[in-house]
Design a protein around this nucleic acid. Structure first.
Lengths: 271, 271
DNA sequence: CGCTTACTTGACATTCTTCAACCGCAGTGG
DNA sequence: CCACTGCGGTTGAAGAATGTCAAGTAAGCG
């Protein structure tokens, strides 16, 4: 107890950062001041049961949600019960549901596992961005990354076979989880059922099962007991054309340069 | 000639607005001042040949592009030549390629027909937004709409059959083209080949052909000579579950209320 | 007229879905 | 301790959806 209190006071550096801070650190250089603000930002986490809605379809949400622990997703459910997962939301991800369209959310946000989430009041995000330009930059980049992933999924649906889609998803999850310290160089906890994977990839559960066996049979992956491990990561990446470009975009290595230099370069380019 | 000059001076109201202004008017109330600024914004249009790239894959684009006439698209091309169209860009659409990820564009922007486009310098967009908050609001809503469409495509790929996907695409194009005055209540010019439709829907050209015949055979559509007409629009919409919600989101009816009222309401909601 | 491009059609192969059953395991209540 | 139950994973067989290959048609255009 005492030790815990001590650590919560002392360890203000990266060691004690939550997933949100770890993720944003990848996109911009954050000062201690920035990190403090972010830590306060997600100070009162809530708990979400597994398979419950954080934001329902049709809601007009107030503010955003930060996933701190657990897996969640954006999804769209049809009248006949079938649903399509649109994106996985991992620890560190912010669902910034600012300014949804008239009529409310066109999709829902729901947990897949038990989650701890931080609720974000709508105004506080704007204030945070104004007071902390580096944070604002990181948030924008994170948003661009989310869009890039969505485009990548669409490409996958149009152009990739079932095993390739799964392989690509695993590569994506590996990189994104590594970015928040939840994966080793080739493995991570995957608390999803094959049905979940099917809803994300647009495949039937049975076909997911068979495609996984294809990947296992090819010596590319190992997936048992909710643990994923890439046996042959290079092979896995090449079979689905997972590009380092895409990787860099969704989870760049920790930002080291003051990004003002980057911005300056961008402004010089045009004239 | 004289008459033309006269009209260009006199008709500053909606009659002479270009597609960009017409579209943004749907998302926010624009003053004459706003419209003037937008008109200047796209003052020097360029011409793009059919089937040429406006922004290539890997480019680090400077500024954005406004489509003024013609059809363009975002697409991703693979090494084997197959490509996936990620979105159609119609007159009035702004490809705001601000802040792309490291390594440049993960997809290309190319024309499908001959296009006239306006190039937008990166800085000028920010200035415009600062000086014209209503324009900024409209631009943000347009962006949200674009994302909603992308999500809708993903849902379509995962959950809808080939004829349904085509039907949904037609409904989307109808609504979007209506928003810029390029469609009647049930018809529009569709300058796309069946191969284009296939690349957009993730279907082979042959299957697009057969699915179109299904739709024609069901008395839902008519598609000849690059002219689309919905014979039974209600039926077409219901067969693909095209929702008025989605419709409202991608092209709301022309904004009539001062949107400050809307914003105010949003702010009241929380807290 | 001959060329090209887009559309159409038929036959066949492949991919994927559906239905149904079974297995193994963990929890649960008797 | 055991039977029961439910869930997730696995398997087989049949059928639907979609892709591929190949050929033919129609319209536009130099």
């Amino acid at each position: 107890m005492l030790a815990q209190m001590e650590s919560s006071v002392v360890e203000l550096d990266s060691r004690s950062d939550d997933a949100f801070i770890r993720k944003l650190s990848r996109f911009a250089v954050l000062s201690t001041h920035d990190r403090d603000a972010l830590a306060r930002f997600t100070a009162r986490p809530q708990l979400g049961r597994a398979r419950s809605d954080l934001v329902a379809q049709g809601d007009v949400p107030d503010g955003g949600i930060v996933i701190l622990e657990g897996f969640a997703c954006r999804y769209r459910q049809q009248a006949d019960g079938r649903r399509q997962i649109l994106a996985f939301l991992l620890p560190g991800d912010l669902c910034d549901v600012e300014g949804v369209s008239p009529g409310g959310m066109d999709h829902a946000i729901g947990t897949l596992t038990a989650c701890t989430v931080g609720r974000v009041a709508p105004g506080s995000l704007k204030h945070l961005a104004l007071d902390h330009p580096q944070v604002a930059l990181a948030l924008q980049k994170a948003r661009l990354a989310e869009e890039a992933i969505l485009r990548e999924w669409l490409v996958g649906f149009g152009l990739r076979s079932a095993p390739q889609r799964l392989a690509h998803l695993f590569c994506e999850l590996l990189v994104r989880l590594q970015a928040v310290g939840l994966a080793t160089s080739d493995s991570f906890d995957l608390p999803l059922t094959q049905a979940d994977l099917g809803e994300a990839t647009g495949l039937s559960t049975v076909h997911v099962n068979r495609s996984l066996q294809t990947l296992r049979g090819a010596g590319l992956i190992q997936l048992t007991n909710r643990k994923f491990r890439a046996i042959n990561l290079a092979g896995l990446r090449s079979m689905c054309a997972f590009s380092s470009l895409h990787e860099q975009c969704i989870a760049p290595s920790a930002a080291l340069l003051p990004s003002s230099a980057v911005l300056g370069a961008a402004y010089v380019q045009h004239s």
